[in-house]
């Protein structure tokens, strides 16, 4: 791969949007090319600065209430439309847009569901950080934590410790997500607390890890051997991803015949 080819792909490389083969080619290239390496470093630094600065704007409770009220009073929409403020051309354009989008929608329904679960996971993670809420059983010994869950849950969550890799198991607790009891395992990495949520999804196919950023926190989700997994932390996405990789590998080994 020459420099020109590499430059065109550096952005996608930084964003983790390249396939493995191209990623490896980029990695090989930036070992030798200082300009491209610098570009990657700068893009990463910039991403980190934006993430750390929490630049999101949050709607006020007042505007949320106003919109809820407007929605309720606009129903049913076919008898009382809002035609006053917006010219018909804008509405027609909206119809066209909606048709266009629906016509070529590339996703399944699952992302929308996951998205709601993600918010619940994040809420639960934030609750767990309140004093005294993080662990019900406090132990770095997986042989203490694992039996604690039996009798309290109708499934047996895998309990792994990665102290050697910097992710120390510090305990577990029961939590509730989407109205069901889930196991939460708590890890510590430097000063960051990490929650791993586990619950059964019988018959669900395995799904590889996807990560999302939300209100300055990182979430990673995957499905493996009929269990749903969610990681939540304020740890940066790369390091959280490395914990996900460790877990997925350990779980695959554990369930291998």
């Amino acid at each position: 791969m020459n420099c020109e080819e590499a430059r065109a792909l550096l952005t996608a490389y930084v964003d983790g949007e390249l396939d493995l083969i191209h990623s490896l080619e980029i990695e090989k290239h930036i070992e030798a090319c200082e300009a491209c390496r610098r570009s990657v470093e700068n893009q990463r630094t910039l991403r980190f600065a934006i993430e750390r600065s929490s630049l999101r704007y949050e709607p006020t409770a007042a505007i949320e209430g106003r919109i809820e009220t407007a929605l309720r009073s606009s129903a049913p929409p076919n008898t009382r439309t809002q035609r006053g403020r917006w010219p018909w051309i804008a509405i027609a354009a909206g119809v066209l847009l909606a048709t266009f989008i629906v016509g070529r929608w590339p996703f399944g329904v699952q992302p929308a569901v996951d998205n709601m679960v993600a918010q619940e996971i994040l809420d639960s993670h934030l609750r767990s950080l309140l004093p005294g809420h993080l662990t019900d059983v406090q132990s770095s010994d997986r042989h203490t934590v694992k039996p604690w869950f039996s009798g309290r849950t109708d499934f047996s969550p895998p309990v792994e410790d990665f102290a050697a890799q910097g992710f120390r198991l510090i305990g577990g607790r029961l939590d509730s997500v989407s109205g069901r009891t889930v196991a939460a395992l708590v890890y510590q990495h430097r000063q960051h607390s990490i929650n791993l949520y586990v619950w059964p999804l019988p018959g669900a196919p395995d799904a590889s890890a996807t990560s999302t950023a939300r209100q300055g926190y990182n979430l990673i989700h995957w499905t493996q051997a009929g269990l749903s997994y969610w990681l939540a932390s304020d740890l940066n996405a790369e390091e959280l991803q490395s914990l996900a990789t460790l877990l997925r590998r350990a779980l695959a080994n554990a369930s291998a015949p």
Partner: peptide
Amino acid sequence: QEAFLRAYRFFDGFHGGD
């Protein structure tokens, strides 16, 4: 607010997805 009212109006055209 306008976007939400529009989205609600076109909601019947949303057939699942993200």
